[in-house]
Write a protein that binds this DNA or RNA. Sequence first.
DNA 1: ACCTGAACACCGTTCAAGT
DNA 2: ACCTGAACACCGTTCAAGT
Lengths: 209, 209
Amino acid sequence: MVPDAPKHLTPRKKPRQARAAATLDAIFEATLQVLVAEGPEHLTTTRVAERAGVSVGTMYQYFPHKQGLLYALNERYLLALAERVEAQALACHGAPIAKMVESIVKTYWAAKMERPEVTRALYRSVVELDNDALIEAFARRVDTATEAMLTTAPDAKFADPRTVNLTLLTTIFGAVRNVFERDLPASEAHAVQHQLILMCVAYLTAIKS
Amino acid sequence: MVPDAPKHLTPRKKPRQARAAATLDAIFEATLQVLVAEGPEHLTTTRVAERAGVSVGTMYQYFPHKQGLLYALNERYLLALAERVEAQALACHGAPIAKMVESIVKTYWAAKMERPEVTRALYRSVVELDNDALIEAFARRVDTATEAMLTTAPDAKFADPRTVNLTLLTTIFGAVRNVFERDLPASEAHAVQHQLILMCVAYLTAIKS
DNA sequence: ACCTGAACACCGTTCAAGT
DNA sequence: ACCTGAACACCGTTCAAGT
């Protein structure tokens, strides 16, 4: 059973007029800009409203509070990310395991590295959030997609594909996050990416039946 | 060159009398309690002072601001963690790689899982922090310790031990964090731990020379 | 249907006064 | 040398009033 997003974090209203949709977009855009430029600790409702060109009151028509705004922002981001990984997983059905691993690592990595400041800002923005539902929904989608992919590999069968898949994703997602946390220079980050692929392939090769 | 902790995050004064030392301990203890019980979003200076049995003003004698308090708390935690990993790495000098990997994974894992609510609270508390110096100091210590350990393995030599070691640590630390983020049930978490060890061993075996 | 912005409660931080 | 707590500035949130 997929848990609903907590009610109090859901947008209060959907835009019914073009003006409202534009306002919402402006708010999201402004939030990202403030987040990247000043960091989550300086993200105030006043600053966001100012940059979006609306009044504070307007923000509160769409979001019940600041957390709700950040929740929605992360939701957007994770939905797009899940879609990318799903598409790539689907494209790799029937490919050898080495190809699968390389595709997933590179897709996820690229998505996170394209705009590192945005990634970093969102990683940090997530802290004060009741984000369990968000993470779980994302994890569930990606889990399903990559596990389905794995079972189509022509060169490997796994006794417990669920656990194997969970281990792969935990490791890959975790490693990427750790690279950000340590703020590794590009050359080292790239080296780690390459080694991570080797590691996952070595793992799958070692345990396949 | 090891960067100093940012000046503005350093305690303002060291305790010179017994009373002051007790006050400092009480503040740290109260911070952890509030953090675990109410989460970082409800951690207020008033609440911490109240629980520590001191006035707000007293807190500001020891910490320049709330961030400084959280910084010091995380510093304590990471110093203790680094020490544990260092000791374990030292104890594994000359052991086979499988034993090394198992020791490091289990030591780090155990340290994080012993008091999961504390770990989770600290992971979350770190967000609003200028914690680069903290992370870097921790990473540097652990890097050094485990790389030295790796080079003593009797059953493997590595062309680029620095990168191999970096990859191992990134993966292990990242995986543990991801297990927390996904809030995996104990059984799955345990399964992932076991698979993570297999993965690291398979990696080292595949690339050794 | 959507937007405004003054008003209120609360939190971080300071500092004059105490022991 | 250490502690107190009222006072101030600022931020999240509301709501009566506008279009």
